[in-house]
Simulated scan of single mutants.
Amino acid sequence: MIDHLGIAVSDFAASKTFYDKAMAPLGASLLYMVPEEYTGGAKVGGYGRDRPVFWLSGGTDKPKAAQHVAFTARSRAEVDAFHAAALAAGGTDNGGPGLRPHYHPNYYGAFVFDPDGNNVKAVCHDPE
């Protein structure tokens, strides 16, 4: 149902460094930077596997409120790798990899806070 979404970040370079590393285990990368003449000089870039679906928008002093974003992992191993990469990139742990059966029996996810305090996670819904 959602085609794409974006979040505001206070330091585009720091967030880009974080997401470059955190998204790699999920097979996603920065696919497109919007030319700054179309953004009023702000840095805006989109991440995805085959097309941009997750956008970062810089140029704000401080995002207004932290967001929650969940990225689809194709396996539990990708969830584990996402969590490790996000922590190595400077993220803060908000719940290590594991089953969350209170959502459903196969819900396997891991949570981290990004540099702006956004709660980001990777989740796999498939059984092992």
Score class of each variant (00 low, 15 high):
residue 109 G to R: 12
residue 103 Y to I: 08
residue 36 E to G: 12
residue 71 F to I: 13
residue 64 K to D: 15
residue 6 G to Q: 04
residue 35 P to V: 03
residue 35 P to Y: 04
residue 20 D to G: 06
residue 118 N to Q: 02
residue 28 A to V: 01
residue 82 F to C: 02
residue 79 V to T: 11
residue 30 L to G: 00
residue 94 N to H: 09
residue 37 E to R: 09
residue 52 P to L: 09
residue 87 L to W: 12
residue 52 P to T: 08
residue 31 L to E: 05
residue 55 W to F: 11
residue 37 E to G: 04
residue 100 R to F: 03
residue 2 I to T: 13
residue 13 A to I: 07
residue 4 H to V: 03
residue 60 T to A: 05
residue 57 S to G: 11
residue 85 A to H: 00
residue 28 A to Q: 03
residue 19 Y to R: 04
residue 43 K to L: 09
residue 108 Y to W: 14
residue 89 A to T: 12
residue 36 E to V: 14
residue 45 G to K: 01
residue 100 R to P: 08
residue 20 D to F: 07
residue 44 V to H: 03
residue 100 R to G: 08
residue 126 D to S: 11
residue 85 A to D: 00
residue 84 A to P: 00
residue 85 A to E: 01
residue 41 G to V: 04
residue 7 I to K: 01
residue 77 A to I: 08
residue 79 V to W: 05
residue 63 P to D: 12
residue 95 G to F: 13
residue 62 K to H: 13
residue 105 P to H: 12
residue 35 P to F: 02
residue 62 K to P: 03
residue 61 D to K: 15
residue 50 D to E: 15
residue 66 A to H: 10
residue 13 A to Q: 11
residue 56 L to D: 10
residue 63 P to Q: 13
residue 9 V to M: 06
residue 31 L to P: 02
residue 63 P to F: 12
residue 6 G to P: 03
residue 69 V to N: 14
residue 111 F to Q: 01
residue 94 N to G: 02
residue 114 D to Y: 11
residue 68 H to T: 15
residue 95 G to L: 11
residue 118 N to W: 02
residue 26 L to C: 04
residue 42 A to V: 02
residue 104 H to Y: 15
residue 75 S to H: 12
residue 80 D to K: 07
residue 123 V to Y: 05
residue 60 T to P: 00
residue 117 G to Q: 05
residue 86 A to R: 02
residue 55 W to M: 07
residue 102 H to R: 14
residue 55 W to H: 06
residue 50 D to I: 11
residue 47 Y to N: 09
residue 83 H to S: 07
residue 8 A to H: 09
residue 59 G to C: 09
residue 19 Y to E: 04
residue 10 S to C: 00
residue 122 A to S: 14
residue 97 P to S: 02
residue 115 P to M: 14
residue 64 K to I: 15
residue 81 A to W: 06
residue 127 P to N: 14
residue 34 V to C: 01
residue 113 F to I: 06
residue 37 E to P: 01
residue 46 G to E: 06
residue 79 V to E: 08
residue 115 P to G: 11
residue 67 Q to P: 10
residue 51 R to Q: 15
residue 86 A to I: 07
residue 95 G to H: 12
residue 115 P to D: 11
residue 46 G to I: 07
residue 49 R to C: 12
residue 60 T to N: 05
residue 48 G to T: 12
residue 54 F to S: 03
residue 39 T to F: 06
residue 120 V to S: 04
residue 125 H to V: 10
residue 20 D to Y: 08
residue 91 G to V: 09
residue 30 L to T: 00
residue 118 N to K: 02
residue 34 V to F: 02
residue 9 V to I: 12
residue 91 G to M: 00
residue 83 H to K: 07
residue 90 G to H: 05
residue 15 S to A: 13
residue 106 N to M: 11
residue 70 A to R: 14
residue 117 G to A: 06
residue 32 Y to K: 06
residue 116 D to W: 03
residue 2 I to M: 12
residue 103 Y to S: 08
residue 116 D to V: 02
residue 108 Y to H: 13
residue 6 G to N: 07
residue 89 A to N: 13
residue 58 G to P: 07
residue 35 P to H: 09
residue 99 L to R: 04
residue 96 G to L: 01
residue 75 S to C: 15
residue 62 K to G: 06
residue 104 H to P: 08
